[in-house]
Design a protein around this nucleic acid. Structure first.
Length: 873
RNA sequence: GGGCGCAUAGCUCAGUUGGUUAGAGCACUUCGUUUACACCGAAGGGGUCCUAGGUUCGAAUCCUUGUGCGCCCACCA
C-alpha cells in the first residue's frame, strides 16, 4: 500500500519502472488500443531532434506539451498516435563528427576519404541517437516506439528519392547556375535562411579602378572587384548621367575589365561615392541586378575561397590575402581615395560561423513559382499561402499567420543541393553535359552519380507523410494504411523560430505530393530563456540541463514547471525554483492521495452521497474543475488548466475539505470518487505520479482510463451546478441559527465551523478559520457568555459554531476599522455608478441589478461592522 | 527600411469576448503544527496595471501617441 512506501514522493523509485510498464503494455501504439473501428484519430508527429543533440529545455517543453495532448486524447478515446523520430541533420552532424575526429586523431575528413568518413559518422550516430531517445523517455513521453523513424533510414531514403524524381518530372526541381551562399569551411551551399547575419566593423575602401575612369567606387571587398562587369548608379544621380549606357574598358591593377554603366534604383546616392561596382558572381544583390540588365558573370573566387587562375598576380591567393594586396597596390598606384570603418553585417554559416562567400554555382533548386499541373496550375508558393490564408492550417497564437505569410510570399527558389558527404544522395546521374534523374543508374557506360547531397530540410519537410508509409501507402491518388488513418496530422507543435526553416517546407511538400495539408494546426511555444532573459546556449554555459532537473525534482515537476506561467509564442525565463515549487506540489498531491487511499477500500465510487454542506461544496468545486480542465485543454490553454487544477487540489481539496473530513466522518465515498477523477484529470500533466498512485490503488493502468467529464457524475444527487456558492448557504444557515439561538453580534469572540469533537477542532482550526473568515466576515463575532458550556452549538443540521478564543480588542478594532474604510470606499464607487443615469440606462439590465444588490448587501455589511465597533468600544 | 512582441507586487509571470474592491508562484513579516504532507499550515505586508490622450455607463483589457526593452525579415556596395 501507498502509505507504507514513503512519506514523501521519490520520483526515482517510480519513473523508470512505470515507463517500462507502459512500454510493455504496448498502449503507446494506437493499434493496440481497445477502440471501435470508427474511433477518430489524433496524430502528432514529433519534430525530430537532431541525433547529435542532447535533450535541452526546448525539447522538454515540446515533449511536455505534446505528451499532454496525446495522453489527453488517448484517454478521451481517440486513436492517439505520437510518432517518434530523429533527424540526421546533415551539416550539423558532419561538423560534429569532423570536430571529433580532428580532436581524437588530428585528421580531417579529407584525410580519411569519403567512405571511411561516412563509416565514422554512422558509428557516431549509433552512440548519440541512443542518448537522445533515452532522454526523451525520461520525460515520460508516450511515443509509439514501434514506428520510430529516422530521416535517413531506408524507408525515408526511398521516399526522398521518389519525391525528388516526382518533383523533377513535374519541373519543380531544376538544375541551374545561380548565386548561392557558399560556406568555404563546410564546403557547401547554404539556404538563404541558414545564413546568419552578424554585426561587425569593416573597412570600407573608396577608390578608382584606374586613372582612366573618374568614377570612384566603394567596397568592403576589393578582391571581388576583379570580377566586376558593370558600374551601377542611381538613375537620379546627375553626377554620372553622362556615362549611362556606355561600356568602359580598362585595366584594374593589371586585370582587364569591361564595365557597363547602368542605372538601378537599388543604388544609394549617398553611400560612398554613389557608384557601385557590380560583381554578379559574388554578391546576391549584384546577381539580381545582373539578371535584370543582362550582365556578364565573371567568377573570381573558387569553392576553396581562393582567387581563380585568370587574375594575374592575385591568382591562388586567399580572398583575404588578395584583399590586402589589392589595397596595397591601389595605394601605391595612387588610386585609393579613402579608407573608413563602417558597421555592417556579415553573413555567416549558421552551423560553423564561417564567413559566407556568395558565389556562382551549378545547383539543384526547388522552384516555388513554377505552375504545377496537378495543383490547378498553382505554384508551391501560391498553394502554401492559400492553405494558411483560408485557415486550412491555423496558427496558435494567430499572429504567426502573418509571419508565415510574409515569408512565403517573399520566397525565392530553394537551393536544395549541398556539397557535404553526409546526407541523402541526389538521385541523378551525369555524363559529360547530360543529366539523368531516376532511381536507377542508366545502363549505358559513363554515367556518374551526382556527388551532392540534399538539404536536410528536404527530408524533414516530408516528415508528416514519410513517417506514415508514403510512398507505398499512396497509390493512384489513394491513401491507405497509416497514411489514410493518420494524415493529415492534427497538430504541429514546435518553436516559433522554425516557421520558415521547417513549417513552410512541410506545407509545400505535403501539398505537392498529397494535395493536402500536413497538419491542421500549428501550435508554437516560446523559447525558454535563462534567469536573465538570455538564450540558453552551450557556448555561454548558461543552459539548464533538463536531465539534472529531472534527477533532482522528478519528471512530473519539470513538466508542470514548463506548462505553467507561460503563454504560447511568448518566451519565458526559467529558473530552478519553478521545478522546486512543482516538486512540492507533486509531493503534496502524493500525500493527499495517500491519506484518501489509506482511509478507503480499493473501490472507486462513482456515486457519492453528498450529505453535508461541505460535501456539496467540494463536489460542486470538483465538477467545476472537471469541466474547466476539459475546456482549457480543448482550447490548448495549458497554463491555466494546470494552474487551476493545482489550485483546486491544494487549496480547496487539501487545505479545506480534507480538514473537514477529519471532523465530519464518512467521507470515504466522496473522497475516493474525487480522487479517481483527479488522477485521471491530472494524468496528462503529471503522468508518473498519477500512475504511481493509481497502480498502488487499482489494478489497471491509468494511462487508458477514461478522461473524466461532468456527464460521468450526473447521477450524483444533490448537485446543482448553479448552486455552488458556499457563502450563500452558510449565511442563510447561520442567520437561521442566530435567530433560533438568539445570538447577538458581540464584542470579543470569534466563531468557526467545527463538528463533533473539540480536539479535532483545536487541531484544525487554522484551516477552517481561513475559509470562514474570508467568506462570512459578519458572523465572526458572537457573545461568548451566550454560548453553551461545551462551547459548541449547532446552527444547522450540518454546521456548528464553536467559540474559539479571545480576540485582542485593539487589534480587532483596527481590523474592523480597516474593513469599514474599505467598504465605505467601495460603496461610494458603486453609488457613483448607480447615480450615473447613463450607467442605469445603457448598461445591461443584469449588470445594473447585480450592482444594486451589491450596494444593498454592502450597506448592510457596513452597518453591522459599525455596530460591532460600537460594541467593542 | 518593413514587421512582430513585451512593459501588471521585490523577482518570474497569469489575467479568455471590456463588467464585483487586479491574481498566482517565489521572496518577505508574524504565528502555528509534528500520525496525509516542513517538499506543511494560518495570518499579513506589498500594485498611480510604463506615459499621455481617446472610445465607453464602465478600460490592465479596445484605439492613437510617446518612451524603454526584446525578436524576426530585408539591405548593407
Amino acid at each position: 500500500m501507498l502509505e507504507k512506501i514513503s512519506k514523501s514522493y521519490n520520483p526515482e523509485d517510480f519513473e523508470d519502472k512505470i515507463y517500462k510498464s507502459w512500454e510493455k503494455s504496448g498502449l503507446f501504439n494506437p493499434d493496440n488500443l481497445d477502440l471501435a473501428e470508427s474511433a477518430p484519430s489524433y496524430t502528432i508527429i514529433l519534430p525530430p531532434p537532431n541525433i547529435t543533440d542532447k535533450l535541452h529545455m526546448g525539447h522538454s517543453v515540446m515533449i511536455a506539451i505534446e505528451d499532454l495532448l496525446i495522453r489527453y486524447h488517448r484517454q478521451k478515446g481517440y486513436r492517439a498516435l505520437w510518432l517518434p523520430g530523429t533527424d540526421h541533420a546533415a551539416i550539423a552532424t558532419q561538423n560534429a563528427v569532423e570536430k571529433k575526429i580532428l580532436k581524437e586523431t588530428g585528421k580531417t575528413r579529407h584525410d580519411l576519404g569519403k567512405e571511411e568518413f561516412l563509416k565514422e559518422v554512422w558509428k557516431f550516430i549509433d552512440e548519440t541517437q541512443a542518448t537522445i531517445l533515452k532522454q526523451i523517455k525520461k520525460m515520460g513521453a508516450s511515443l509509439d516506439w514501434s514506428r520510430l523513424a529516422f530521416t535517413l533510414d531506408e524507408p525515408r531514403q526511398k521516399a526522398v528519392e521518389k519525391m525528388f524524381v516526382d518533383m523533377y518530372e513535374s519541373g519543380v526541381i531544376y538544375r541551374g547556375e545561380r548565386i548561392v551562399n557558399w560556406c568555404p569551411r563546410c564546403h557547401s551551399t547554404l539556404a538563404d535562411d541558414e545564413v546568419e547575419y552578424k554585426e561587425k566593423t569593416s573597412e570600407l575602401y573608396t577608390f578608382y579602378y584606374s586613372k582612366d575612369l573618374p568614377i570612384a567606387i566603394s567596397t568592403t571587398r576589393p578582391e571581388t572587384k576583379l570580377g566586376d562587369t558593370a558600374i551601377a548608379v542611381n538613375p537620379k544621380d546627375k553626377r554620372y548621367s553622362k556615362y549611362l549606357g556606355k561600356t568602359i574598358n580598362l585595366s584594374f591593377l593589371g586585370v582587364d575589365l569591361s564595365l557597363q554603366v547602368i542605372a538601378d534604383n537599388l543604388v544609394d546616392k549617398s553611400f560612398g561615392s554613389g557608384a557601385l561596382g557590380v560583381t554578379p558572381a559574388h554578391s546576391m544583390a549584384d546577381w539580381q541586378m545582373a539578371q535584370e540588365h543582362n550582365l556578364e558573370f565573371k567568377k573570381v573566387i573558387d569553392e576553396d575561397g581562393l582567387i581563380k587562375n585568370d587574375f594575374s598576380k592575385y591568382s591562388k591567393l586567399s580572398s583575404l590575402e588578395a584583399r590586402k594586396k589589392i589595397v596595397n597596390d591601389l595605394k601605391e598606384a595612387g588610386l585609393l581615395i579613402k579608407t573608413e570603418t563602417i558597421e555592417n553585417s556579415i553573413s555567416t554559416c549558421y552551423r560553423c560561423s564561417s564567413v559566407i562567400e556568395p558565389l556562382l554555382s551549378k545547383q539543384w533548386f526547388v522552384s516555388v513559382d513554377k505552375p504545377i499541373k496537378h495543383l490547378e496550375g498553382k505554384s508551391l508558393k501560391q498553394k502554401a499561402a492559400e492553405v494558411v490564408e483560408n485557415e486550412e492550417i491555423k496558427f496558435l497564437p494567430a499572429r504567426f499567420k502573418q509571419t508565415y505569410l510574409n515569408w512565403v510570399n517573399n520566397l525565392h527558389d530553394w537551393c536544395i543541393s549541398r556539397q557535404i558527404w553526409f546526407g541523402h544522395r541526389i538521385p541523378a546521374w551525369h555524363r559529360e553535359d547530360e543529366v539523368y534523374v531516376g532511381f536507377e543508374k542508366p545502363k549505358e557506360a559513363g554515367w556518374q552519380k551526382d556527388e551532392d547531397t540534399l538539404d536536410t530540410w528536404f527530408s524533414s519537410g516530408m516528415w508528416t507523410f514519410s513517417t506514415l508509409g508514403w510512398p507505398d501507402n499512396y497509390q493512384n491518388g489513394e491513401k491507405k494504411g497509416d497514411l489514410a488513418k493518420f494524415h493529415p496530422t492534427n497538430v504541429l507543435e514546435t518553436g516559433y523560430d522554425i516557421i520558415t526553416l521547417w513549417v513552410s517546407r512541410m506545407v509545400m511538400m505535403s501539398l505537392f505530393t498529397l494535395n493536402e495539408v500536413p497538419f491542421k494546426e500549428v501550435y508554437l511555444h516560446g523559447m525558454i530563456l535563462d534567469g536573465e532573459g538570455k538564450k540558453m546556449s552551450k557556448s555561454k554555459g548558461n543552459g539548464i540541463d533538463p536531465m539534472d532537473l529531472i534527477e533532482k525534482y522528478g519528471a512530473d515537476a519539470v513538466r508542470l514547471s514548463l506548462l505553467t506561467g507561460v503563454t504560447p509564442g511568448n518566451d519565458s525565463r526559467y529558473s530552478e525554483e519553478k521545478a522546486e515549487a512543482k516538486r512540492n506540489f507533486i509531493n503534496k498531491f502524493w500525500n493527499i492521495s495517500r491519506f484518501i487511499i489509506s482511509s478507503s477500500d480499493n473501490k472507486i465510487n462513482k456515486k457519492a452521497q453528498l450529505n453535508t454542506l461541505a460535501d456539496r461544496w467540494i463536489f460542486s468545486k470538483f465538477l467545476e474543475i472537471v469541466e474547466n480542465t476539459n475546456e482549457r485543454l480543448e482550447k490548448k490553454d495549458f497554463s491555466l488548466a494546470t494552474e487551476e487544477l493545482i489550485n483546486f487540489i491544494w487549496n480547496d481539496l487539501a487545505n479545506w475539505y480534507l480538514e473537514i473530513s477529519k471532523i465530519e466522518k464518512n467521507k470515504e465515498e466522496i473522497l475516493s470518487c474525487m480522487l479517481s477523477g483527479i488522477l485521471r484529470l491530472i494524468h496528462p500533466l503529471a503522468p508518473f505520479v498519477s500512475e504511481a498512485i493509481w497502480q498502488s490503488w487499482q489494478n489497471t493502468t491509468l494511462m487508458t482510463e477514461k478522461y473524466p467529464s461532468i456527464s460521468e457524475f450526473v447521477n450524483v444527487e444533490n448537485v446543482d451546478l448553479k448552486d455552488f456558492e458556499l457563502i450563500q448557504e452558510i449565511i442563510v444557515a447561520i442567520r437561521e441559527a442566530r435567530s433560533a439561538h438568539k445570538i447577538e453580534p458581540s464584542k470579543k469572540i470569534a466563531a468557526y465551523i467545527v463538528v463533533n469533537k473539540k480536539e479535532d477542532l483545536i487541531k484544525n482550526q487554522q484551516a477552517l478559520i481561513k475559509n470562514l473568515k474570508t467568506n462570512i466576515k459578519e458572523l465572526n463575532f458572537i457573545e461568548k457568555k451566550q454560548a453553551p458550556k461545551e462551547a459548541v452549538f449547532t446552527i444547522a443540521s450540518d454546521i456548528e459554531i464553536y467559540l474559539l478564543q479571545e480576540i485582542d480588542k485593539d487589534q480587532e478594532l483596527e481590523r474592523l476599522d480597516k474593513e469599514r474604510k474599505d467598504l465605505e470606499k467601495y460603496i461610494k464607487i458603486v453609488k457613483v455608478k448607480l447615480d450615473n443615469s447613463d450607467f442605469v440606462k445603457k448598461a445591461p439590465e443584469k449588470v445594473v441589478k447585480i450592482e444594486k444588490e451589491k450596494l444593498k448587501s454592502s450597506t448592510e455589511k457596513l452597518e453591522k461592522i459599525i455596530e460591532k465597533i460600537k460594541n467593542l468600544k
